[in-house]
């Protein structure tokens, strides 16, 4: 870990001011906000992140979960994953989010990790995390070690010739299925970004993972009102039973009265370079019977553009089975 300056922000505007001095808010930022620290401190120890200045935002008043006037839920950026997962409204009305949070990491990590931090969780690609190897995400232009390397855990959707790193978050997948909105305070004031627009595909700039600019601080996440009559769930498949990232996961929000699908949101984890909303699967479901055949068809649609590499071809079938099982469980 390199030496750095440490300060504590007492107001959001002070934090934004501090962050605005960074040349980027993406990989290589020289100013970083720290909340739970579960990603940042880890990467600093590995010298993947080497900020000059670290601003502690834990003192900011962003730790509330409150209903919105329209019947949704506003979640502060500093709400801990453990608290959010156990929040009565989340458990009852946004089950998929509670389940996704509880499937991630370990209790110790969930006690520390925050909503805002989880949105910015970095990939577990082994080459990104080790400075001995070339990585376009960590050091643009050096090449991708993963494409011809150990890529079993890596993405099959949204990849590019420059990067196949997976977005590792479970929470993000649930938020995607729930169509959450990210609240950001920037130098020019506050703005709201739908989660679908928040994350960027790697393309030729894998070092850019989201739309944040220098000074931008995530202040919270807003969930729309629950869609009446829907059921939601999160299914995560992995090698061991706990404390591991997904090989494939599915977040489902679905409404199928009388055995016919009226509403469906399908998002995938563990397979995409970003939390993967499958509009194709949703389109294939709505108006169709809630049957094994249409679920399998939707799964085929979701994976039709999959581009596997040397070790992760199995994820294509695994993700399909994950979708089918999740849809089946949510509609019985």
């Amino acid at each position: 870990m390199d030496a750095f300056q440490f300060s504590r922000a007492t107001t959001v505007s002070q934090a934004v001011q501090s962050g605005s001095g960074s040349q980027t808010s993406q990989q290589g930022a020289d100013v970083r906000f720290v909340a739970g620290g579960t990603t940042l401190i880890d990467l600093m120890k590995l010298r993947v992140e080497r900020p000059r200045i670290v601003v502690d935002i834990n003192g900011l008043p962003l730790d509330k979960v409150e209903p919105t006037p329209s019947g949704g839920l506003a979640v502060g950026a500093l709400v801990r994953n453990a608290d959010l997962a156990q929040h009565p409204t989340v458990k009852q009305s946004y089950t998929v989010l509670s389940e996704a949070l509880l499937s991630g990491a370990s209790p110790q990590l969930r006690n520390m990790a925050t909503t805002g931090g989880n949105l910015l969780q970095r990939t577990r690609c082994v080459y990104f995390r080790d400075t001995a190897h070339a990585c376009n995400k960590r050091e643009p232009g050096t090449g991708c070690s993963a494409i011809d390397g150990h890529n079993r855990m890596l993405a099959i959707l949204g990849t590019s010739a420059e990067c196949i790193a997976t977005n590792p978050s479970d929470m993000n997948v649930a938020l995607t299925a729930l169509e959450a909105t990210i609240q950001i305070q920037g130098v020019k004031g506050p703005r709201s970004v739908p989660i679908h627009d928040f994350f960027l595909l790697p393309g030729s700039t894998p070092q850019r993972e989201n739309v944040l600019e220098p000074g931008d601080l995530i202040t919270g996440v807003t969930l729309p009102p629950p869609v009446p009559g829907t059921r939601s769930l999160y299914l995560k498949l992995r090698d061991r039973a706990a404390y591991e990232f997904a090989l494939a996961s599915a977040a489902i929000v679905i409404k199928a009265p009388g055995g016919r699908v009226e509403y469906a949101r399908v998002a995938l984890g563990g397979v995409g370079t970003r939390p993967w909303r499958s509009l194709e699967a949703e389109k294939a479901l709505v108006g169709r019977p809630a049957s094994p055949a249409s679920f399998r068809h939707a799964a085929e649609m979701a994976l039709k553009d999959a581009h596997p590499h040397s070790e992760n071809g199995f994820k294509v079938e695994l993700a399909k089975r994950c979708i089918v099982r999740a849809l089946t469980t949510a509609t019985v």
Partner: peptide
């Protein structure tokens, strides 16, 4: 333990990537 054939590095040299059973397993 997975050695990268290009450079000989045991690339899963940590407890997130070299997995062992948890209590749940």
């Amino acid at each position: 333990t997975i050695y990268d054939p290009r450079n000989g590095h045991a690339v899963n040299d940590n407890f997130a990537d070299y997995i062992v059973p948890t209590i749940a397993d």
